[in-house]
């Protein structure tokens, strides 16, 4: 058995445009990306809106069929056609969405929400069905009084805890977390992050963590991948990522984060003032897609798209500069 629980190889997801001026073109939401997640680790997939991070997550979870590429889960290629995906995988890969307000049916009570996955996957404890759900609630630190409440009666943080409990109910191996705390206050975020860390240890879970918050990534993830316009720009273990970022986009992202201490300012060693906005994924710039915003772009960046290069063990960067520096 390989140490990777999930491998994504050359994944592509294009959305064809069927209406309007740009008809016939397609949105290259995810364009040839590869990464892997080891058992028990957390891979953070970081990017701005439109970077394709959520599309990647939806491919893994089986909400979209991939255009090309391969997804391997526990050494078994899982079909790119979501209709052929066996029910077993829906049990082993779970997802927590960004906004718990929209992922929990407002008209159903907590007990029904939590018992649905158990019923579908025939995991109901016949002797004590209520106790089983109460135990799930306890796992996410919610009181059993909530059994008969609807999500509307819960606070934002509590709803997200409920969403985590639902994901946990089928005893999955991999949980995709799509910005699970971005809609919540920091004091609640802290609680949920700590809970997720505890659950990861208790159940040997692997996480694919989609986020924009690098401060959170620093304290939560094992490895980090930065996405820009459907491609991965840099991927590295968390320590190295923050001590030795290579890609200009990584540096720009780091510079943009509002921080609260001098110690953190030091992490932003090379201040790259952010400028411009992410271009439309329909008209991706020629050459390196970051060239419109890169302060260090030179001739080659406008002609040729760089490829992933390993700069250190486990640390890959997709940038001409890094390549040229190594050659000289």
């Amino acid at each position: 058995m390989s140490e990777n629980i999930l491998e994504v190889n050359n994944l592509k997801k294009y959305f064809p445009i069927t209406k309007g001026k740009e008809k016939g073109l397609s949105v290259k939401a995810v364009d040839d990306i590869s990464f892997s997640i080891k058992r028990g680790e957390t891979l953070a997939l970081v990017g701005e809106s439109g970077s394709g991070k959520s599309t990647t997550a939806y491919n893994v979870i089986g909400m979209y069929s991939a255009t090309a590429g391969q997804i391997i889960f526990k050494d078994e290629p899982i079909s790119n056609n979501i209709k052929e995906r066996p029910l077993r995988l829906r049990k082993e890969i779970q997802m927590v969405f960004q906004d718990p307000g929209t992922t929990l049916n407002p008209r159903r009570i907590v007990k029904d929400i939590l018992s649905l996955p158990l019923k579908i996957h025939k995991l109901v404890d016949k002797k004590d069905p209520v106790g089983q759900i109460v135990r799930l609630l306890e796992e996410v630190e919610l009181p059993m009084e909530y059994l008969f409440k609807t999500p509307l009666a819960l606070g934002g943080g509590e709803r997200q805890m409920l969403a985590v409990a639902r994901a946990l109910s089928t005893n999955p191996d991999l949980i995709v977390l799509d910005e699970p705390t971005s809609a919540l206050d920091v004091s609640i975020q802290a609680k949920i992050i700590n809970m997720l860390l505890r659950l990861q240890k208790d159940y040997d879970l692997s996480y694919l963590f989609i986020t924009l918050d690098l401060s959170l990534v620093r304290n939560f993830a094992t490895r980090v991948a930065i996405m820009y316009l459907g491609k991965i720009a840099e991927i590295a273990p968390t320590e190295i990522f923050f001590s030795d970022p290579e890609h200009p986009y990584t540096k720009m992202l780091l510079s943009a984060i509002p921080v609260i201490s001098e110690k953190e300012e030091e992490v932003k060693h090379a201040k790259v003032t952010p400028k411009g906005e992410i271009p439309s994924p329909v008209n991706v710039p020629k050459g390196c897609s970051f060239n419109t915003r890169c302060p260090l772009a030179f001739d080659r960046c406008f002609v040729e798209d760089p490829v992933m290069k390993e700069v250190a063990s486990d640390h890959q960067v997709r940038c001409h500069l890094v390549e040229e520096r190594r050659q000289s």
Binding site: M63, K91, T103, I120, H121
Partner: peptide
Amino acid sequence: NELFVKSAELLGAS
């Protein structure tokens, strides 16, 4: 297209 419907689909609900 609401996420709670998508969630149920992802869980494999009938």
